[in-house]
Structures are given as structure tokens and as C-alpha cells.
Design a protein around this nucleic acid. Structure first.
Lengths: 218, 218
DNA sequence: CGGCAAAGTCACCCGATGGTGATTAGGCCG
DNA sequence: CGGCCTAATCACCATCGGGTGACTTTGCCG
């Protein structure tokens, strides 16, 4: 329709008329971001070819062409998140001295909680991991496990855990607790009677984890 | 068709011809069980009116009639699970003496892990809780939290936690860790580098939780 | 027997989904 | 200008989802 044909109803305000960019990499980027956003907002339930295409403002066909379908898109997003731990959990010491291995794990718990609480996408993916076991998701989980191990390795310095402590198991427990608390907080705002809404609530929770970490490694 | 009308083709072997029971409560039961089974097997994703009806071997209309739709069915299942903790986490002491509050929580962690590992339905519902926040689900979570609190209360006897210990927070952390480990085990078979498949793996994990519980309450 | 309420089934509707082949629209280059 | 490669869209399909109204069967009771 040319501009001449009398102002139709929608002419007054056509705010959504993003004309097609006709730029492959940019469109790929839009799809990619749409996927991330959708996942972050609505979780894997809201994640589908149609939804992504709608959000990206392009035809779903392009998802197949550029990513080889949803699986490919998930892969791309997952790959992008491979270094998540390394990128989102800082390795400085926040002005504190880490005197013991327990201090170290206490710090990790705190940082991991912060990072997770700040990243909806990652949270959704964590829940996704609990819901089904597709290869993509498994890969992401593995990458994260490695990231955490690397973090510990790099931060450890000369700190050593007490003899007889099963560090792998203890660390897994600490991380598990943090993770479950953060995930539960989002939907129910509390866990097992412990409120998890305000900043104070979180300070309390983290302090409990810290106490356990320190005590276990004492 | 009367018995006289010559044996029709299907008489020799009619394996799938469950004739309709025409018994309301029984049909209700079938629907209910189908819902539970479906939820346990495939999680909330596989849960829908059509699927339940298929599994129950009746028309989906009956789900609406007898339960008022899926929501009603979920409610029914949830109500049935209200006393889950009380029913599935035993209160005897397994031949052990619980000398300290830490022992108590250690024991709870162990029992809770066992109970959860033995109950696919409950696991699915826990994951569901992390995925969305419908009122039904919230109610279930609340009931569970109460159940745990009651368990502790009943088992506590004269045991008292050390002064200055934030029992609510510490207990929540312990339960959270157990829960996350059990849920993660199902799909990925490990968590943060800790394998969670064999009975031995679990002994290791539980022992780590136990150590932390004891230490934190020392 | 006749009839009636309850149990159960059928046939649809609508919208959304994943997925595909054919088609259009646009820029670039000779 | 005309051709050509490619980004992008369109139109369509089969399927499945939740949901509803009309229908048939069955057993019971007077």
C-alpha cells in the first residue's frame, strides 16, 4: 500500500513498524536475544519457535534457516553461557581475607547466590535442567560444574581443607543449598519457613550457609 | 448384545475391552490415579486433560464433571499429598540415639533424602513448584513446610540447639541442599561434580550433609 | 413395562504449535 | 537496464491442546 491511499485507521500511530533489516547477522542476533529474553521471562515453557519469532519480529522460518531449529538456538544460547561462572562470579576477594578453606567456600556461596539472584536467565535454565534431560542442558550443567571447580582452584591459593573432609561432596552440598534457595525464592518467596524476599532475608540465608561452610571445614 | 448372538470376532481374545465401569467413585479414582501416574512419570509437562483422560481410559469430559477441570484434579492430588512429610518421613529413631540437635537434623536430612528419592511424584511436584507459582502448588509447599516443622517439633524432645543458632535458616539450608541434590540426581545423575547414582554416592552425599548439620549445630 | 437420572461417549470448536515449500522483495554488480 | 543471490515472508499443513454441548447407554425404581 502506497502512502497515498487515504490514511487508514492505523496510520496515526504505527509504532511497531520495524522494517526488516535485511542483515543476516543482525537478524540472527535479534532471534538470539529474543530467545534469551523469552527464556528468562517465561522459562522453558514459554519457549517455542512461534514465540521466539514473534518476539524477534521476524518469520519463524529464519530460526530454522539460521539456527537449524529450536535445538540449534538452545545450543547457541547454551554455548554463550558456557563461561557463566567465570564471567559472573568475581574472583577478587571483596576486601576480605580468606584465611581458611571454610572462608573460601563461604565466600563462594555468597558470590554464587548474588550472581544467580541477578540472572533470571540462568535461574530458568537451572530449573529447566531439573525438568528434563536433553543433551544441551546436560552440557550446560557440566560446563557450570567445571566453572565452579576452576573458581575454587584459582581462589584457593595455598588454602587447604582439613584432612578427611570430602571437599567435592561438601562443596556440592553448599552449592546445592544456595541454588535451591535462590530457585525457590523466585516462585514461592520462601523455603521451609525461611522467608526469602528482602535483602535482609538473604543476608540471613547466606549467613546460615556461611556458618555451615565454616563449621564443616573447621 | 445378548450372550446368544454368535461369538463375534473379538471373543477369542479381547484384551483391551475394559468395559466402562459405570461407577462414579471408581471412575473418579481412575482419573485421580491416572493424574498421579502421569505427573510422576512425565512431570507437569505431560499433564493435561487429554493425556489424563487417555490414561484413565475414559472421556475427558468426566474430568470436568468430577473434578471441575484440571485445576480441581490438581487440587485433589495436592490435598492427598498434604500430609506427605508426616506420612513418608518416619519418626522412629532407626535405632540411633539422637544426642544433639545436630544429630536430629542429620537424621532428618537422611530420612528426607530417602523419602524423596523413593517418591517420583513428589519430586515432580517439587520441580513444578520451581517452574511456576500457581496457588495449588503454593499450598502444597506450605503444607510441606509445616510438616517438616512438625516433624522437628515432635522429634526434638528435650534437645535444644546452641544459643545464637538461627535454626529456621540452618534447617532450611539443610533441607534445601538435600532437595536440590535429589532433584538434580534424577536428570543429570550428578551435581557440581558429585556423582549421585549409586547407593554409595548417596551415602557420601548424605554424609556430607550430616557433617555440615552436626558442625553447624556444634 | 415406562420413564428418568446418572454415567459415559461423541462430535465438534477454536487457537496455538512445530514444521515446510513456494514466493516475494531488495540490494549489488556487470 | 537486467540478472542474480539472498534475506525475508507467506500460505499452508498436520497435530495437539483445552473446552463445551448434544447425544447415547445403563441401571434403577415405581
Amino acid at each position: 500500500m502506497t502512502a497515498m491511499t487515504a490514511e487508514t485507521v492505523e496510520t496515526p500511530a504505527a509504532p511497531e513498524k520495524e522494517l526488516p533489516v535485511r542483515d543476516r547477522v543482525q537478524t540472527q542476533g535479534r532471534i538470539f536475544q529474543a530467545g534469551r529474553a523469552l527464556l528468562a521471562e517465561g522459562g522453558f515453557q514459554a519457549f517455542g519457535v512461534n514465540a521466539v519469532a514473534r518476539k524477534a519480529g521476524c518469520d519463524k522460518q529464519l530460526i530454522y534457516r539460521y539456527f537449524g531449529g529450536l535445538d540449534g538456538l538452545v545450543d547457541a544460547i547454551g554455548e554463550d553461557l558456557a563461561g557463566w561462572v567465570t564471567q559472573h562470579v568475581p574472583e577478587d576477594q571483596g576486601g576480605r581475607f580468606l584465611l581458611t578453606y571454610g572462608d573460601l567456600m563461604e565466600r563462594l556461596a555468597e558470590l554464587y547466590a548474588d550472581a544467580l539472584r541477578a540472572d533470571p536467565l540462568m535461574r530458568r535454565i537451572l530449573v529447566w535442567e531439573l525438568s528434563e534431560n536433553s543433551p544441551h542442558i546436560a552440557r550446560m550443567a557440566e560446563a557450570r560444574a567445571k566453572g565452579i571447580a576452576q573458581w575454587i582452584e584459582r581462589m584457593r591459593g595455598s588454602l587447604t581443607p582439613p584432612k578427611g573432609a570430602d571437599t567435592v561432596a561438601l562443596n556440592a552440598v553448599i552449592i546445592a543449598a544456595v541454588q535451591q534457595l535462590v530457585l525457590a525464592a523466585e516462585t514461592s518467596g520462601s523455603f521451609a519457613g525461611l522467608p526469602l524476599k528482602s535483602q535482609k532475608d538473604w543476608a540471613r540465608a547466606v549467613s546460615a550457609v556461611a556458618r555451615m561452610a565454616r563449621a564443616a571445614y573447621a
